[in-house]
């Protein structure tokens, strides 16, 4: 139960990352610098709040697990409630920099901290700390534009992000493929400090919602774990909806 809760958090983290990174206005731009491209991505992902449903399929070796969840987000806060039978009632709450899990079977409220933040759930490659990434990527990394490449039948900017000195990041280096027209990342590679490729994420579907382009199907693959990947499907997404502030509270978690 606890494990699956952890997995759920990762999923949420992933989703919130996606929402932040992916929403953007289609804009044809030429001659942009790396910083300008990222600023565009950041600006396009400026979603005040959202509500939607998501399905997460986790493949580990021969096993496949499916999680159903409902997600609310607003600013730095997010709430995920699981609906699939195995995890029903399990909730995940992100309050700024804190992560909380609620397990209904044990009626147990757990704060995720320390080493637990580094754990990935269910063989998915999302870690809790990924979901805590509130800071803008430009605060954490220095970007450089490597060029333009064909990527999933689109033209993509290839950006390389290197951790700024003195800033603590999980991935020392990232490489991102940003759709030239939609300013939505289509692919991302995450690297270890020593340069080894750790994870690869691919956006497999992008939908236009309220005039923004939102990735609604993303697959993350852990390179170090053979046969392990996680796919997130997003549906019925509403943006900038009214969400009562008290939804993001420990009290609502236990409700």
């Amino acid at each position: 139960m606890r494990r699956s809760g952890l997995q759920n958090r990762q999923a949420l983290a992933w989703l919130s990352c996606l929402l932040v990174v992916l929403s953007g206005q289609a804009l044809a731009a030429a001659g942009l610098t790396a910083e300008e491209i990222i600023a565009r991505v950041d600006a396009n992902s400026d979603v005040q709040s959202s509500h939607g449903y998501s399905t997460m399929v986790i493949r580990t070796g021969r096993r496949e697990l499916t999680k159903e969840m409902e997600i609310w987000s607003s600013g730095d806060n997010a709430l995920v409630s699981f609906h699939n039978p195995a995890d029903r009632g399990t909730k995940y709450l992100k309050l700024g920099n804190e992560l909380w899990m609620y397990f209904p079977d044990a009626d147990d409220l757990v704060k995720i901290s320390g080493h637990m933040l580094r754990q990935g759930f269910m063989g998915s490659d999302f870690s809790y700390e990924d979901t805590l990434e509130n800071r803008r990527l430009t605060d954490l990394y220095e970007f450089s534009l490597l060029g333009v490449e064909e990527c999933d039948e689109s033209e993509c900017y290839v950006l390389e992000a290197t951790a700024r000195p003195g800033v603590e990041v999980t991935y020392a280096r990232r490489r991102m493929w940003i759709d030239r027209e939609l300013f939505v990342p289509r692919r991302e590679e995450l690297y270890a400090a020593g340069g080894r490729l750790l994870k690869v994420s691919r956006v497999e579907r992008i939908e236009e919602i309220d005039g923004r382009f939102i990735p609604t199907q993303v697959t993350m693959e852990d390179v170090l774990r053979q046969g392990s990947s996680t796919t997130l499907f997003v549906s019925d997404l509403e943006l900038d909806v009214e969400i009562p502030d008290d939804l993001f509270s420990l009290r609502s978690l236990m409700r």
Binding site: A163, E168, T170, Y171, A172, A192, A193, R196
Partner: peptide
Amino acid sequence: VVLTTRTRDGAIQALD
């Protein structure tokens, strides 16, 4: 073998 750990700065490090 591949070992993953964290550097002093918290970044994931993978050692082959």
